[in-house]
Amino acid sequence: MNKPLLMIAGTYLAVIGLALLLVPAQFGVDAVPDDPSTELVALLRLLGGPFIGIAVLNWSTRSAAPLVVRLVLLANLVGFGVVAANDVVGVATGEARDLARVFVVVHLAFAVAFAVAWARERRTPA
């Protein structure tokens, strides 16, 4: 279960990271003004780097030692859990863009999948 989850999450994060780097204003539809400042575009591009880094970490870890896998699963659980919680609050309060309704489902699904994977992996000897 861990290998496909890490590959899917890695691919998802790579796509998000590349979108932030290559088409930041278009990726930020309904959140970024039609004529964004160069500083805002630079900030969005800056965020793309860590997404790509985590994608590489996920992809590289899919066949790693159990302790390493456990740590990466936990890090993904925390990351996706925080993002999902932010999405839930934004959608519930109406402060998020309309597209957040899609992302809340995706991020909650990743958070739950990583929680299950982490719980199962914790029972595996190191």
Rank of each mutant, 00 (worst) to 15 (best):
L99M: 14
L6I: 11
P4L: 04
T124W: 12
L74M: 10
I8G: 05
F51K: 03
L57Y: 15
F103I: 10
L44F: 13
E95C: 09
M1Y: 15
V105W: 04
F103A: 05
I52G: 03
A75F: 15
F103V: 09
V78Q: 04
A65E: 09
F80H: 01
H107G: 08
G94Q: 01
S60M: 15
L108K: 05
A9Q: 04
E95W: 13
P125Y: 02
R70F: 13
F110I: 08
P66D: 00
A92R: 05
L22H: 01
L73K: 01
V69T: 10
A55F: 15
R45Q: 12
V88C: 05
T38Q: 13
L99W: 12
P24G: 01
A100V: 14
A100S: 12
L40Q: 03
A42S: 11
F51D: 06
A42C: 08
A55M: 11
P50I: 07
A117C: 07
V106H: 01
V88F: 14
V68A: 12
T124L: 14
P36R: 00
P4K: 00
L18H: 06
L21K: 02
R122V: 14
R97H: 11
S60L: 15
N86D: 13
A14L: 11
L74E: 02
T61H: 04
A42N: 08
L73W: 05
A117D: 07
V104N: 02
E121G: 08
G79W: 08
V41Y: 06
G49P: 11
L47R: 13
A100Q: 08
T61G: 07
V83R: 12
F80E: 00
A96Q: 02
V29E: 10
F103S: 06
L44Y: 12
A9Y: 06
R123C: 11
R45G: 14
P24F: 03
T38S: 13
L6F: 15
F114M: 00
Q26L: 14
T11Q: 01
A84H: 05
V72L: 07
L22W: 09
A100E: 03
E95H: 14
G17N: 03
S60H: 14
G28S: 04
W59S: 12
G28N: 02
A9G: 08
